[in-house]
């Protein structure tokens, strides 16, 4: 896999809700609003996983969503990054030990960056994206 230097200046984001309570989704939308203006860094929300470089997953992965999350991940063109937004995707959060959870997320798809919080603040999500960029830069150096 070859990463060009322009990759991390143009991250297109796709958001998938794997059974979240909508708290994290609202915070993602808040992070994309003009107040924080992530378009400065080339970050853009796209409508199709085929266009995306970063997959934002919110929520604990419910049984129904397990295959869908997996399929969305497979539909993305590599190179790709997965970010897990919110505590649910890491431990189950308030849904911990629930009967219909197939999560945490990293048992379904490989996760690169975790953003904990219930719900995480927009600043935390942007910090997570910065961590994703840093990770991409590390990958880029190791490829060279």
């Amino acid at each position: 896999m070859k990463l060009s230097p322009s990759f991390n200046r143009s991250l297109w984001v796709f958001h998938v809700n794997s059974g979240s309570c909508n708290g994290c989704d609202i915070e993602i939308v808040a992070a994309l609003c003009p107040r924080y203006d992530p378009e400065r860094f080339g970050i853009k929300l796209v409508g199709s996983p085929r266009h995306a470089d970063v997959l934002l997953v919110t929520g604990p992965v419910t049984h129904q969503m397990r295959d869908r999350v997996r399929r969305v991940y497979d539909q993305m063109a590599s190179p790709k990054v997965v970010m897990c937004i919110g505590t649910c995707g890491q431990s189950g959060g308030v849904f911990y030990d629930s009967y219909n959870l197939d999560g945490p997320l990293d048992q379904v798809i490989p996760v690169d960056v975790y953003v904990p919080g219930c719900a995480p603040r927009p600043e935390a999500i942007i910090y997570g994206v910065v961590q994703a960029i840093a990770k991409l830069e590390r990958l880029e150096r190791s490829v060279k």
Binding site: K2, L3, S4, S6, F7, R9, S10, D37, E39, R40, F41, G42, D53, A77, S78, P79
Partner: peptide, 17 residues
């Protein structure tokens, strides 16, 4: 807003995917 060369960066990224 994005830098003026953002569309060029986007195209270059898409070509590397």
């Amino acid at each position: 807003g994005p830098p003026l060369i953002q569309p060029f960066i986007d195209i270059r990224k898409l070509l590397s995917k």
